[in-house]
Design a protein around this nucleic acid. Structure first.
Lengths: 167, 167
DNA sequence: TTAAACTTTCAATAATAATTGAAAGTTTAT
DNA sequence: ATAAACTTTCAATTATTATTGAAAGTTTAA
């Protein structure tokens, strides 16, 4: 396998994994491309490499920025915007863990709490609903705790950033 | 919120969370329905409750059985097949963790290993590809280890099952 | 062995999600 | 102020995935 083949295989595999876990393919592929790029890429670069449209590229780059894993890079003297992704896999994991907790798990926890706390009546059905959704709430809470543990692994982020800026 | 409302809210929310994480809605909803049911349900029951077709129900039940989280229950004297889901959330988590590791993470790990092990050449690009996919491999391996830790939490499964059978 | 009761399969259809591309919007240089 | 260079938006289109329903398949009872 040569460089080009390996690159394509990586990008396509990462895209498929994304789909499997509810992340759109283009988004995952853009991230993958930036992740192995040695320099920031422009929208043109990305469009050309992945053969996707301008609109698609623009929208998915925005989403990646919303997730906090891609940032704009201003290159002095250049009109175009350039993009880079977080290159540190641990930081990447932190951002993703944090966002999935916030967007997806938190709202579900809220519903599970509501449902498991409805008033008891005499019926067996209601008791089962309450009991089982309570158990699911606790499990989901555990999963959420785990994600947040990952997300907070780096409590010295401020310090680290400070050092980066200072040197 | 009364029983019926709570039930519907739970089933619909669980279905949406499923979609978000790459699990088809009907599959998640069938599991949710069984999860709060006080007794095994037939295909008719499920079709009626969720307002989905016979074919859809059949296919998704099969998938749930493949995942190991739903089982057929034979009720003596009944022609119909009845279904139950694993009621213990921890067992549920184990099955899901194990399957997602096996189906989704393992194949990706293989590709990441291949890609990160391509021959070095002089180029910076190749080195970056190797370095970054290696890092991603290690991270994915960590995630996979975590899933398997969950999956194997219950190393005394055999013992437990044995006890269940014996008593 | 037949037929009723039930389940599975799968081609057709529908629903959902991703993608395009061109018009509108923004920024920068002169 | 103007226009070139670039980005964003969004209605229309296309691709993907889920769902239906009826025919084929299977099991059971008599």
């Amino acid at each position: 396998m040569n460089y080009q083949e390996a690159k394509e295989k990586f990008i396509s595999t990462w895209g498929s994994l994304g789909s499997l876990w509810g992340i759109n393919k283009a988004m995952a592929q853009i991230q993958a491309l930036l992740f192995i790029s040695t320099k920031p890429l422009s929208m043109e670069d990305i469009m050309e490499e992945l053969k996707i449209s301008r609109g698609n590229t623009s929208m998915n780059l925005r989403q990646l920025m919303d997730w906090g894993i891609v940032t704009k890079e201003i290159i002095p003297g250049e009109r175009k915007e350039y993009f880079t992704t977080e290159k540190d896999v641990e930081e990447l994991a932190r951002h993703i863990a944090k966002e999935r907790s916030r967007r997806e798990l938190k709202p579900v926890l809220k519903v599970l709490k509501e449902v498991s706390n409805i008033d008891s009546d005499q019926s067996e059905e209601t008791e089962e609903l309450k009991k089982q959704t309570k158990a699911l709430h606790d499990l989901t809470q555990q999963a959420d705790d785990m994600l947040n543990k990952i997300a907070d692994q780096d409590l010295n982020w401020v310090t680290k950033t400070f050092i980066k800026i200072m040197r």
